[in-house]
Write a protein that binds this DNA or RNA. Structure first.
Lengths: 200, 200
DNA sequence: ACTCTAATAGAACGAACGTTCTAGACTCAA
DNA sequence: TTGAGTCTAGAACGTTCGTTCTATTAGAGT
């Protein structure tokens, strides 16, 4: 049996991906983690908020690691983007259209009520964008262009989870990946011949 | 005073945009609508689900109308996309970073629990994509390309709401609009000289 | 003036919520 | 063997949830 704290994180991650933040009760969490509520408050004295913060941070770190792994295994950022979307689409299908990312769901629910969680989610999105931006810089884009393009990719990624899951259509995620991969490719090759994107 | 049913819809729309589906109680709804709970169940006998379905459908129709309005006022689909994102960014700022769209939030919360609402949200996304796809077709894209590109735009739009609101940065939405406008423009001008996008 | 339906009004329901609390069990150094 | 700290265990708390229910009021049609 894995350590209790990890079971809480894993269980909560999956429950958030199905039911969201407010849709997930601590009773569900303790049952899925096979641990009593006393243990939950032992590891997360701050209750649901602290548990959620841990889920956001750990999930954010895990996906960041996955991104670096994919980025290292393909030739250029355009392929990285396409591969990441493709992997997400596979996950979406394989899990029966559970959300790929618990953070986007939770972020939308708590953005106006819990500034600590909002900030945690914001930091995760920024860390992902930063990781991609670094690859874009290495491929020749200047910092500002890279940062903006990377953020747009994260936007499309998160949005494709919403649309793909709601429509039960993983291909929407795959096609979005193709489009964004093309956009990244176009931005990278247009360095010498500035397009509207690069002037903006 | 507006009609009671409309007040319920409006109030619920705004509450969803702040607190999401599960984060919004019917007590909040009745207070914001200044109407008793008896009236709520009079107009929406199906309770919270039926109220939500109405909100999804009416909001979907309203944004569809807004899209057509913007599309008619600019020269081409690329500008339409950029203008729509820009308007959304303005809304985000002006409302103090309340969500621009209640449907995306709600969709993610209920996609695994309420198939009727999921289907309603899916239909709305499809109607938006269809409206944009029609403009893309009129500008020269073939049907499949148009449908896929339009869906990607919707993905990015919804995702930019998540990222923009979480990061309290409306420029993320604007830049996403610029990028997607460029992508649309590129797809439209590459008809004679097929790119990867068009071959996919 | 009367009737009938639409709409208002809010008390009351059982269920579920997040959290707190006390008590017991296990681990390992002293 | 003892004692302290970690972790397990779940009953209990007050609150809030969505919904149901009965009564009352408003207004249009005859």
């Amino acid at each position: 049996m894995t350590r209790t704290r990890d079971r809480f994180i894993t269980a909560t991650n999956e429950l958030f991906r199905r039911y969201g933040y407010n849709g997930t009760s601590l009773k569900q969490v303790t049952e899925a983690a096979a641990a009593p509520v006393g243990s939950l408050y032992h590891f997360f004295p701050g209750g649901k908020t602290e548990l959620t913060e841990a889920v956001i941070e750990e999930t954010g770190a895990a996906y960041l690691e996955l991104f670096e792994l994919i980025a290292d295994s393909v030739a250029d950022p355009a392929q990285t983007v396409e591969a990441f979307f493709s992997a997400a689409a596979d996950t979406l299908e394989q899990t029966g259209y559970i959300d790929v990312c618990p953070i986007g769901t939770v972020a939308r629910e708590i953005a106006n009520t819990d500034d600590r969680l909002r900030s945690a989610a914001s930091k995760v999105f920024a860390s992902w964008a930063q990781a991609l931006a670094a690859r874009l810089c290495a491929a020749g884009l200047d910092q500002q262009q890279a940062a903006r393009l990377a953020t747009t990719v994260i936007c499309t990624l998160e949005g494709s989870f919403v649309v793909g899951r709601t429509s039960r259509d993983a291909d929407a995620v795959r096609h979005a990946g193709t489009h964004l991969g093309d956009l990244v490719g176009a931005c990278l090759t247009s360095g010498s011949q500035p397009s509207r994107v690069n002037r903006s």
